[in-house]
Amino acid sequence: MKVVHVITGLGIGGAEQQLRLLLRHLPPERATCHVVTLTNPGPVADGIRSDGTGVTHLGMAGNRDLRAVPRLARLIRSGGFDLVHTHLYRACVYGRVAARLAGVRAVVATEHSLGDSQIEGRPLSAGTRALYRATERMGTGTAAVSATVVRRLRAWGVADDRIHLAPNGIDPSRFRHDPAVRSAVRGLLGLPPAAYTVAGVGRLVPAKRFDLLVRAAAANAGTFLLIAGDGPERGNLLRLAADLGAADRVIVVSAQDGGPDVPEVLAAADLFVSPSPEEAFGLAVVEALAAGLPVLYAACPAIEDLPPHDAPGARRIGGDPRQLAAAIGRQRQAGGPARLPVPAAVDQYHIAHTADRVLALYASALASATKK
């Protein structure tokens, strides 16, 4: 089958990286794929192209650029695609309409970022909900990245038979701990060999609350903080570290700027902390567990939806900076092995399982479209 993936943008982000990883694991003999990005081709587009999948930039000028709909419809029609797969809010809204105009009735979406009070880091409004629900009915089904997102979609009134669980996935081999990588990255970043180092990973936006992590690390004398990510909050986080007298202990890196990538950052760390109070999945937590790190998190459906014994190295903490600082201090004092055994949760979220579920959804969507 020929599948076109429509996504809002391809800058560095969890959904964007997840799409690239999924494309690598969809067998070409079962799904020939192409990607359309509405805006911002970004570095992930380059990565997808280097993997062998074509990417088209639609050049959408803004949220209200309605000219993008007929352009996308023409692209879908001329490409002879059997199925349209949309990712992220704007692409889901425009992509479903364009697919209908192009005559493609097999349309699925992946809901990557639906929270209780926000979507993709922005507050939910009545208008956002109404537009989402109206266009959702134009598709065949929606893949939810966690059981928590399944419950949120039901609460929005999406019918059970239209919701399909397809959790995010990772390639665990990428995160397997390597002491040589740890030593090299610490040397590159100027981290003392024995310095206790906390890592955080994610988009540097207010909703992720990395400011809480900076405050908590600053309150723990001698503790270093290594944040991997890019976004508008970078400067604010560095200024906050300086104001707290911890500028020499807070390091912010981005692979986009030539810094170490996420597996390397995790290799250099002793503890992973996710301070974000609301998540749809919590991919970075699973990656940290795959690297053998103990984890403190404020919210992580990927772990909360599993039995506790599947992720014994992960512990939920409160969102108060003093509580977080105390939890980091206790973890440091407790010591323990340099790396924990990789828990069962990691294998449950292997990207190969995700690809199998997505292919099953494609088959269901095509069968449903044929009956109409």
Rank of each mutant, 00 (worst) to 15 (best):
A241N: 11
A159E: 15
G245W: 09
Q118Y: 00
T135D: 03
L340K: 06
L266W: 09
S276W: 04
R330N: 08
R90F: 06
L244V: 13
D171C: 05
N220C: 12
G319D: 07
S183D: 14
G329E: 08
A228Y: 01
V262H: 10
L191I: 15
H350D: 15
A194R: 14
G121E: 10
T223K: 04
A195S: 12
I351P: 01
P312K: 07
D347M: 02
G47E: 15
G95N: 04
A334Y: 05
G13C: 06
L204C: 07
A102L: 11
A68G: 15
V36E: 11
L271N: 08
A144G: 13
L131I: 08
H350G: 06
R74L: 13
E136W: 00
A311Q: 11
P27N: 10
L212P: 04
L165R: 12
L10H: 00
A68D: 02
L306H: 09
V286F: 01
L22E: 01
R315C: 04
A290E: 05
L10G: 01
E304A: 08
S183Y: 02
D257L: 13
L289A: 03
A194Y: 03
D310G: 00
Y89P: 06
L66Y: 14
S274T: 12
F281Y: 09
Q118T: 15
Q18W: 09
P321A: 09
G14E: 05
T370Y: 04
H164V: 07
G235C: 07
G9F: 00
A302Y: 01
P232W: 11
S117C: 02
D230A: 14
L266I: 13
H177Q: 06
I328L: 07
A314V: 08
E287Y: 00
V44H: 03
V104P: 06
G259Y: 12
